[in-house]
Nucleic acid binder design. Structure first.
Lengths: 151, 151
DNA sequence: CATATTTGTATCGTGACACGATATAGGTTA
DNA sequence: TAACCTATATCGTGTCACGATACAAATATG
């Protein structure tokens, strides 16, 4: 039987995953260096983005920022500390619940963030095809690997 | 001309970018904890993936790994050091160019990597729609922001 | 073919930052 | 009001990426 035709490359999934992570890393590198050039630490950029880009009805607490950034609470506290020191965000007291610190992006923070948003949209625009392409390959290959298991 | 229409939410781009990064972060969190549970540091996982998932005709040098992981050369050296110590990869001499170290994933490394690949494919399968959804919104919005600039 | 330059990898000291453990004040429940 | 829970804060520790530097091997230049 002609197995010469298909030979579906046992490492195809690995190759596709590698390609996907590579494109992802390139985007993250772009984002990091864009943030640094704009005067922000990459994580500060992410903090501003999640606070300024949250739905209107959200309580902008430290805990919210932590969840959105995938950080533990204490790491978020430290990130807010550093960002507040540089005038990017402010803590305001919550009168309903005095334990809480409500976050607010300052005018300075919004300005920098706005500039970054534009360049990120453009970059993502270029990245999108490669990323979604890799994703399609993976989902196609995901079923096969369920049958094949470890090699 | 008609800006009277739908008050297109000045922060829509920020919201979409925030959502995109959130989904991305969730995937990375999944990947990191999957790696740790499999006994790898997240970066070791990425090293294995890029070495094992490289095209056949690639010279698997330290420099290649560095580029693929978005690291400086010296950081890649250190990552390979740590990974070699744990028996995940090996350095082999390149007879053509004795400066080079050629990387090879050990059987142990391949085994762990194989297991991770499966779960990642499944996870990406679930993530893909949300990610590509956000990407579409962004590319749609990218053009607008070119005209609007900083707000 | 001897020397200068470049390339690939390695070493070392430093700094940023995320974390676990712990603390404390403010809410909530019994 | 005591016991418990929740939200934020503090502190010490460890990992890791980096810049600066070193060195050996390859390539270019005279």
């Amino acid at each position: 039987m002609g197995n010469q035709s298909a030979t579906p490359d046992p490492d195809l999934l690995l190759k596709t995953l590698a390609e996907f992570r590579y494109e992802l890393r390139r985007f993250l590198l772009f984002s990091e260096s864009a943030a640094l050039e704009a005067g922000l630490q990459p994580q500060q950029h992410q903090l501003l983005l999640q606070v300024a880009g949250a739905p209107e009805d959200t309580d902008l607490t430290i805990a919210y920022a932590a969840e959105r950034l995938g950080l533990k609470h204490n790491s978020a506290v430290e990130l807010v500390d550093r960002s507040e020191r540089e005038g990017l965000v402010e803590r305001r007291a919550d009168m309903n619940d005095k334990r809480r610190a409500i976050l607010r992006v300052t005018r300075k923070g919004k300005l920098v963030l706005g500039r970054l948003a534009g360049s990120h949209a453009e970059e993502l625009n270029e990245l999108a095809p490669r990323l979604t392409g890799a994703l399609k390959h993976i989902s196609f290959n995901a079923h096969r690997s369920n049958k094949v298991e470890a090699r």
